[in-house]
């Protein structure tokens, strides 16, 4: 099974709806509650990044018997220094975005903390893609 969502740019009333929908689907599948929460948080952070920084994009969630893969792709300016972007507290968000409750500089670190595997690929001027993998039924080594 595969779910695909289009995520609009800077639409704060819509942002997060895809994650809410994914969480409901995961809960209906009867997955472990803690795992559902980890996936929901990681997906939500990614969705907000696409809406805030990425100029809009897409989210694909693929369900396999042993894992769930999430691919987030945006059309944004790209990340020049991925290591810096992964630093807790580092943010390029505007004051307007902060006033909406985002821009704590915890987005990518929160995603990495919750996913079992995560890779970020980015080209300046072209966009960013983030792949996250969540393993099912296996003990988690955090």
């Amino acid at each position: 099974m595969k779910l695909t969502y289009s995520i609009p740019s800077m639409d704060f009333s819509a942002a997060g709806k895809a994650s809410t929908d994914v969480k409901k689907t995961l809960a209906q599948l009867g997955l472990d509650r803690d795992l559902v929460k980890r996936i929901a948080v990681a997906m939500y952070e990614g969705e907000m990044n696409i809406a805030i920084h990425g100029g809009g994009g897409t989210a694909e969630i693929e369900f396999s018997p042993d894992r769930i893969d999430i691919l987030l792709v945006d059309r944004g300016p790209g990340i020049a220094d991925i290591a810096l972007a992964m630093t807790e507290g580092f943010s390029t968000a505007s004051e307007e975005v902060r006033s909406m409750g985002f821009g704590a500089g915890m987005g990518l670190p929160n995603m990495k903390r919750n996913a079992d595997e995560m890779t970020v690929e980015s080209r300046v001027g072209e966009g960013t893609s983030v792949r996250m993998r969540f393993l099912l039924g296996a003990a988690r080594c955090a």
């Binding site: 704060f12 009333s13 942002a15 997060g16 948080v41 939500y44 952070e45 902060r98 909406m100 409750g101 985002f102 821009g103 704590a104 500089g105 915890m106 987005g107 670190p109 929160n110 903390r113």
Partner: peptide, 24 residues
């Protein structure tokens, strides 16, 4: 007031206090 901070710290059976009054 910053939602990523909430997501980084929250455990179980929590009450959230916030000054952020929006759908997010």
């Amino acid at each position: 007031d910053l939602m990523s901070d909430v997501m980084a710290f929250v455990k179980e059976r929590v009450v959230l206090l916030t000054g952020l009054m929006n759908p997010q």
